[in-house]
Nucleic acid binder design. Structure first.
Lengths: 139, 139
DNA sequence: CGGTATCCGCTGCGATACTG
DNA sequence: CAGTATCGCAGCGGATACCG
């Protein structure tokens, strides 16, 4: 039995590069997208606030990511033509339906960061000791 | 109340670029990582089988992604020195603990692909009609 | 404030060729 | 079969400057 065939005969298969769901996966499987969905999960947030929250993101990347999410119907952009201008972003219904998954990924990363850092050290140490079989005690 | 402070006083915060959990998020939030976790969720799979399953992946990217996952302790690599050689990859306990989330992302992409494709068309159409205010009925 | 436009260095990734 | 090594290009993302 193929797991790509669930109830109702869902035809999309992200394993296929020509399937549109692959492009959706590509958009979702992104660091910034994940953090943005999480950041917007409770209430609308302004552009500047998002920029401060997502430490290290450039203005360009933030704009681009938000624009893609808006295009995909994940977020809703509201522009208040005040002076100074004010732009708020909020999740659509579609966006809210993926909050659990995206916040879950972020949460998992935070929960298991210690195990993973340890695993990385162990892996790197093993490579090192292969390269230097014996650290030559004399000389 | 800050959502980064859950029970037990978890100190990791993926919003901060200097936090190690950001690097974990970076590794997880990847198209190939997501598909690989899903592909390995039931049983060990050989390198060649993974390559055929993940349509469009290059050998280099597959090797790199698997190596990173092995380093992070997500997958276990087993090499059988037969002729021809045979290498199997399987999820570790840590890897199994993220299957639900990763397969969930893939599943969500497949479930909502139609809505998103529609949203994209609508967005692109709106941009076009702004560029061409009236499609000049007369010529 | 919230963009857009431009430049530009870096690396991500695919293609190809070769190895144990 | 399952890699490693090398090359070469495209695109991402940061920095900067300017606009509504």
């Amino acid at each position: 039995m193929d797991t790509t065939l669930e109830l109702g005969g869902l035809s999309a298969d992200a394993y296929l590069k020509s399937c549109a769901s692959r492009t959706v996966l590509n958009a979702l499987a992104d660091k910034w997208t994940c953090l943005l969905v999480d950041a917007l999960r409770h209430e609308p947030v302004r552009f500047g606030a998002l920029r401060r929250r997502l430490d290290g993101i450039s203005q360009k990347s933030l704009t681009q990511t938000l624009r893609t999410m808006e295009r995909d119907g994940i977020v809703i952009r509201t522009h208040y033509p005040t002076i100074p201008p004010r732009v708020e972003y909020e999740l659509s219904a579609l966006g809210h339906s993926v909050v659990t998954l995206m916040s879950g990924i972020k949460g998992w990363a935070e929960e298991h960061v210690d195990e993973i850092v340890t695993a990385r050290k162990r892996y790197d140490a093993c490579l090192d000791e292969e390269a230097q079989p014996v650290p030559s005690p004399l000389r």
